[in-house]
Design a protein around this nucleic acid. Structure first.
Lengths: 349, 349
DNA sequence: ATCAAACCCCAAACCGTTTTGGATGATGGG
DNA sequence: CCCATCATCCAAAACGGTTTGGGGTTTGAT
């Protein structure tokens, strides 16, 4: 591996102390000496050993992400890649490492305890929070800075989080459809143990209630967000006696499935049936090209990753700081998948 | 944080030496004492400090993944999430941490040097290799165990890798289409600086040549693997005077775009036009349900992650071992997206 | 010339483990 | 009874940095 600090010091005829100070920008070292040291360090390709450094300083210089895999579904949430890419940018900028643990959700508590107890991270990001998520009190007890991506309704103690305004976004989207004359709006949501899905549903329900439209349980589906599930949900709803004229959907993949089902049914998206989806702005799943394909509530998950990381780093360096929270609004992007509700065909025809 | 070894030793009236040995299973400690120690450790929730441990042992107990983000496209390869989930399982089993660095591809060399120089990882996984990838000689020089996910043609020195048989898979898929009578086969590939894309192309070309079918440059596209690009490529080819009757596609997302284009053109997939895609078996992008939607060359990227990690861990613990290589064959799954070539419509009609 | 304050530098302790090189006492063969 | 062996344990030295607590030299004011 590389050269060590002691060796570097020796080669310069200096003490390790001075070399360390020179490199870390302490004032009590002659500028000429500092220059010599930095030159030598560069030339000899010196890099401080991370483990030694963090042992000495007590800071791990690393942030942990625990990504849960639910046993039943065995699904890896596709947004992780982009979120992590965003967070990674922030960490790199700050000189932090990112360590990731993939873990079945029944072992999660154990993993958190381990990470903290063994001191391998200075802070943690909590992914995919559920209602009254037990991880939040756990991490609070463990006394480590953490930030939740999303929120957990039912937790009354304060904690740090970054979330998007799912409720408002989905309420607006629903109202948009109502304004276009739609009354039967199919709702294809993620699994409703996830907090975000619960909030989206209440946005949908509130908007309907606000206009006095009765919510129909037959038009509401909650499932893992895959193309197949979107397809099946839409197919089933379209087969109802009084099928929906519009769909509100929780992810692009679901929406692609819905589109597929419309196609199978010989329906034209945007004319016969409208679709609004949430769009995480994933790098590999863009919503159309110059002109957006789907009308969508959009919020970049990558940007969320960046900002979450920045907030957490802030918490880590200012231990005394009170919890930070940030609520990002979502944009409503008008695409080609929505249009006025078609004239109601009287069944009595 | 947690309790320290010294404290644990003190509370037991033993020396740190003995406690360390007891916990690590060394023979020179009385079994009664060992039992006392382990009990106390459990009760006091002792966890050895990772950084101190690895400083003392010289092993980081961590594997690094460097995931490159290409400047121009800013795309995060969607397979990373699943690959990492698979690798994570292996690391967890072996007690290793996984550290991930997201980095623009022009800074990659620097990041590798850093990771190795600062001793923060014991081994590295190289993602998304290109032709004559400079990272391979670099890592060889740095003298750290590494494993390439994929291969890099043009590198003549031996190195460890795990790859799927892209060439054979795509050759077989092409032959399958030829057997069905297709002669105009559109090829929608990933960007052909990636080694896997190059191999797939040669599989396609070889199969065509083997049957004496002339490859038409107008039927070959190379682009980032997104739905939009699949859509555009297929749309363009379908507009040709002599359009393809089949498509061979490099990813599910591309294939979904192709399907979309077929739909727009009023063509029925599997009857009017056939489609074969490669399927990484991503957890969130399943190829249909019970019955596969697309005919596909399938290979689980998650399994690749598991096996890659296992191989790398093997290399890490046996430093002297010669390079390991593993070539996984891909399955050809027959779905509903392929069928016999339609009768040639004579233009002179 | 004197003395305090800057300025620069260093030796040594420390972070929490593992590991080396004994030390101690019990055991057992001759 | 003596001495080698074995079973158990421990003190101290690593690992590679940072940080504490000085200690010489200059500098500058008196």
């Amino acid at each position: 591996m590389g050269i060590t600090l002691k060796e570097l010091a020796q080669s310069l005829g200096l003490s390790p102390t001075t070399v360390s100070r020179a490199l870390n920008g302490y004032p009590e070292v002659n500028e000429d000496t500092r220059w010599r040291v930095m030159e030598a360090a560069r030339k000899l390709n010196y890099r401080p050993n991370t483990r030694a450094k963090s042992l000495a300083t007590g800071r791990a210089q690393a942030i942990g992400h625990v990504i849960p895999i639910s046993d039943q579904h065995e699904i890896v949430n596709p947004v992780f890649a982009d979120f992590i890419a965003g967070a990674g940018e922030s960490y790199a900028r700050a000189g932090y490492d990112m360590t990731i643990s993939v873990v079945a959700d029944d072992e999660e508590a154990q993993v958190y305890r381990d990470l903290v107890g063994r001191g391998s991270v200075d802070g943690l990001i909590v992914h995919a929070p559920r209602q009254m998520d037990p991880r939040i009190p756990l991490l609070r007890d463990l006394g480590i800075p953490f930030l939740v991506h999303g929120r957990s309704s039912g937790v009354n103690q304060p904690y740090s989080w970054l979330d998007i305004n799912n409720r408002r976004g989905f309420a607006r989207a629903t109202e948009f459809l109502l304004d276009l004359g739609h009354r039967r709006i199919g709702f294809v949501n993620g699994i409703e143990v996830m907090d975000f899905a619960i909030r989206r549903r209440s946005g949908y329900l509130d908007a309907l209630a606000g206009r006095g439209v009765r919510a129909d349980p037959a038009l509401m589906v909650s499932a893992e967000m895959t193309e197949t599930n979107g397809y099946r949900a839409a197919r089933r709803m379209l087969a109802l006696p009084d099928p929906p004229t519009a769909f509100l959907v929780s992810s692009m993949l679901l929406a692609i499935g819905v589109r597929h089902a419309l196609w199978d049914a010989g329906l034209h998206m945007g004319r016969d049936v409208s679709v609004i989806t949430h769009d995480d702005d994933l790098s590999y799943l863009k919503n159309g090209d110059a002109v957006p394909l789907f009308t969508a509530t959009r919020s970049s998950i990558r940007e969320a990753g960046r900002q979450s990381a920045d907030m957490l780093l802030d918490l880590v360096s200012n231990a005394t700081e009170p919890p930070l929270t940030r609520l990002l609004e979502v944009d409503l992007i008008i695409g080609e998948s929505t249009g006025p509700a078609p004239q109601r065909q009287k069944d009595s025809a």
